[in-house]
Amino acid sequence: MSTVLLVGTGQVGIRAARQIVDTPGCERLLVASADPARATGLAASLHAGAEGLPEHGAVVPADVAAVVVTTGGTRAREWVRAAVAAGVPVATLHDGLGPELDAPARAAGVPVVSGAAVTPGLSDLLARHAADLFDRVDEVHVARAGAAGPACVGEVRSVRAAVPGEWRDGAWIADRAYGPQLVWFPEPVGVRECQLVQAGVAATVATVPDAGLVTVRWCGAPSTGWLSTRVRRNPVDAGWGATRVEVTGLRSGATDTVVYGAVDRTAVMAGAVVATTAVALAGLLPGLVVATPGVRALGEVAVALPFLTELAGRGVRAAAFEGVLPSA
C-alpha cells in the first residue's frame, strides 16, 4: 500500500493532489497544511483514500513512501528536513536547498528532488531531451512566464529583484546589469519581455553539464491590482504560464538549434511535475527517476523521455518550434 504525504494546499498543492490520487497504485494521500481545515477540505474533495493530517509540526507519519512539499520558505525546509530524518524521498518545488540539506540527505541515503516545478523543473526535462539530440551542446537558454498563486507571484518578484547571473565557460558571471529580452513562448502566452535571473541556472547546469553558456530569463509577475493592470506593462496572465528552452550545439557536423516549449496553467504544470516526481520516487512509476541520495535537480535524476511522455499523458504537453527563429 503506497502512501504519499502532500504538504501545502495552495494552487500547486491542489493540482498535485489530484495528480497523485489519479496515479494507479497510490492508495492513500495524506494532506498537511498550516490551515488544517483547508487540508481536510482538500482531502474530502478528492476520494476516500485521502485524509487531512492534523499538523503538529513537521512530522512524517510511518508508512509514507514519498513526501511532496509545495509550500515555501521555512516550512518547506522543516518538512524536507523531517522527511530526510525519516528516510523518506522528497519532491519539492523549491530550488536552492542544496547547501543546507545536501549533506544530511546524502548521509541518510535519501533522494531529495528540488526544483520540480516549471522553471526549474519542466524546462530542465525539455533541455535534457533537446540536448540528447546533439553531439555537443554549446548553449542552453531557458525562459519562463506566468505564476501560479500569490506565493508564486511573490517568488517571481523576488527572483527578478535579485542579482542576475549566468553560467559561462564553467564559471558564474554575475556582474552585468542586463536589459530585458523578447522571448517567443507558445500561444496564448506569446511574446514577452524577460529578464535574466540567477534562479534555475544551477539546475540547468546540473541537467546539461557540458553546456558552455546557460542563461535563465523570467517574465515579470502578472499584474493583479486594478491600478497596476492599467498603468504597468506587466501582462495579465490569469494563471497561464509557459516555459521555453533553446538549445544550440553541434549535430551531424553542423551547428543547429532546437527550441522546445510548453504552455498551460502554471499551477497545473507545476502540480503535474512535482506529483509525477513524487510518485516516481515512491516507486509507482518505475523508470522515470533515478533515485540518487542527496539534493538533486529534477533534470539531473529524471529520465527525460519517459517523464515527458508521462506528463503528456497527464495533459502537460511539450511543443517544438519550427521555423525561423526571430532575433529580438
Binding site: L182, W184, P186, E187, V191, Y260, G261, L305, L308, T309, A312, R317, A318, A319, A320, F321, E322, G323, V324, L325, P326, A328
Partner: peptide, 16 residues
Amino acid sequence: VPPTTGGWRALEGEAL
C-alpha cells in the same frame, strides 16, 4: 512586436 516565421508543433507519438 516583430513577427515570427513558423509555429509550434505538439510533441507526441513519433515526435516525442
